[in-house]
Computed example of a mutant assay.
Amino acid sequence: MPRKLLRKLFPNPDKLKEHKHLQFLGDTLHLPYLWHLNRRNVASAFAIGLFCMWIPIPFQSIIAALLAVFFRANLPLAVVLVFVTNPVTMPPMLYGAYLVGAAIVGHPPAGFNFEPSLDWLMNGLILIWKPFLLGIFITAVLSSLAGYYGVHLLWRLHMLKHLKERRERKQRKSPPPANDQDSAD
């Protein structure tokens, strides 16, 4: 079951509480709902992590952790999901978000030449900031909703499969019902 695998991969809350750099959080890491693996906490963590991965600033994981505490979601899962974006995946994702925003605003994407310089960031980004931020917001919300409802759907399908298997095992173990005519003889 995925829950057992995730528990092995997640950090131990007791060890995190003892970590010297996390002492400033106090009892926050002791809150049990930050570590639960139930449908609500996992779905909320997916929504938070997939939303925060679109934020084009450093330290997205800190934002995800704060939102996980605020919305009572699974903390490790929310933080780990932010790392879908990395230096390799971020540029195409952000360009795709810009294309989504440009399509919604209604003007064709600007034919700009990207240069990794402060000058381009100040002058080039000023031309595309509206469709860029709109596209980021829309893709963040859509991926967040897809993650939230996708987890609910997958969890439900898993539970239905589990219940079906349980019923089949129970039917195999139970003897067939006795015939009433045989007992009357």
Rank of each mutant, 00 (worst) to 15 (best):
F132D: 04
T28W: 05
I104L: 15
V84M: 11
L160K: 06
V42T: 07
K130D: 10
P177N: 02
G111N: 12
G124C: 13
P116R: 00
P116S: 07
Y148W: 15
P92I: 01
Y148I: 01
W129E: 07
D119A: 14
L81M: 11
L34E: 02
F114C: 04
A73C: 11
W54D: 02
L125C: 04
A64R: 06
K17M: 08
P108K: 02
T85K: 00
P131H: 05
A110K: 05
G150F: 14
A45C: 07
K170V: 14
N123E: 14
G135H: 09
F10W: 07
G96M: 13
L157F: 10
L133T: 07
W35H: 00
P109F: 14
Y149W: 15
V82P: 06
P175M: 10
A146L: 15
L142T: 09
K8P: 06
G96L: 13
R3S: 14
W120Y: 15
P109Q: 09
K17F: 04
L121Q: 06
P176F: 09
I126N: 10
M90L: 11
L99P: 00
L134E: 07
F51V: 08
A64P: 05
N38F: 02
P2W: 15
D119H: 12
P109C: 06
W129Q: 05
E165C: 09
F59W: 13
A45K: 01
T89N: 05
S44P: 04
L66Y: 09
I128T: 04
K170R: 15
L5Q: 10
E165G: 13
G111P: 07
M53Y: 10
I57N: 01
V82R: 00
A43F: 13
G124Q: 04
M53N: 08
I136L: 10
L37N: 03
I62G: 11
A47F: 14
L9R: 04
N41C: 12
E115N: 06
P175A: 11
I57M: 15
Q181M: 13
N74E: 09
E168T: 05
L99V: 04
T89V: 08
H36Q: 13
L142I: 12
G101M: 10
A73S: 13
I55P: 05
H158N: 13
L81Q: 08
K164C: 10
G150T: 05
K17Y: 01
